[in-house]
């Protein structure tokens, strides 16, 4: 006989707490003003518009560095959440007691290549990342960012990451 499935709010709460702990552990994510929407294991990063993100005040347009940072933050969070997914689901990761000190180590960026497709407008931006390859030591992640239309990307990037030791 099968065990009864866990109540939906227990599952949701565990996933949301783990994600929140990961996000809150990184000060630079708060500096940028990036938040994450979660649907199951799918993450959408949201760059909340702020005047400080501008790189060209005359157009105005988002700073290329703000865009690059947003893409890199999105890629690392997608990869981190994917690495921890099994532990979150099994309940092995205790999300309630996660602090910056007890947080699992995050992947480290080896290289990151940003492709700027059009200038970023002074409004919110969204990004989704896809882990194309995740091995024991290395991972390759692609990330796409858009503003008004999902099909009209304003930037995309590919990065390689060194996986954290999982002992």
């Amino acid at each position: 006989m099968r065990n009864a499935p866990e109540p939906v709010d227990v599952i949701k709460s565990r996933r949301d707490k783990a994600l929140a702990a990961l996000v809150e552990g990184v000060p630079y994510i708060r500096t940028l003003g990036v938040g994450f929407d979660r649907r199951g294991d799918e993450l959408t990063a949201v760059l909340n518009y702020d005047d400080k993100l501008i790189g060209n005040p005359f157009l105005p347009a988002l700073h290329g560095g703000a865009t690059a940072s947003f893409l890199e933050v999105s890629a690392i969070m997608e990869l981190s959440f994917a690495i921890l997914w099994d532990e979150i689901e099994s309940g092995r990761l205790n999300a309630d007691s996660l602090t910056p000190e007890t947080l699992p180590r995050l992947p480290k960026t080896i290289d990151f290549t940003v492709d700027y497709l059009r200038s970023g407008l002074p409004r919110d931006a969204y990004a989704r990342a896809r882990v194309n390859r995740s091995g024991r030591r290395y991972a390759s992640v692609h990330v796409e960012a858009w503003q008004d239309n999902r099909e009209r990307l304003f930037a995309q990037a590919t990065g390689h990451f060194l996986m954290p030791d999982r002992s």
Binding site: P27, Y28, H63, G65, A66, A68, E72, E101, T109, F112
Partner: peptide, 27 residues
């Protein structure tokens, strides 16, 4: 700056902040 930290355990600056510096400097 603490606001630029990417790894709270080590205090190392986030790669994205270094990217922003490189981008500005290149421009």
């Amino acid at each position: 700056d603490d606001a630029l930290v990417g790894d709270p355990r080590t205090g190392v600056i986030h790669g994205g902040a270094v990217s922003a510096l490189m981008d500005t400097c290149g421009g």
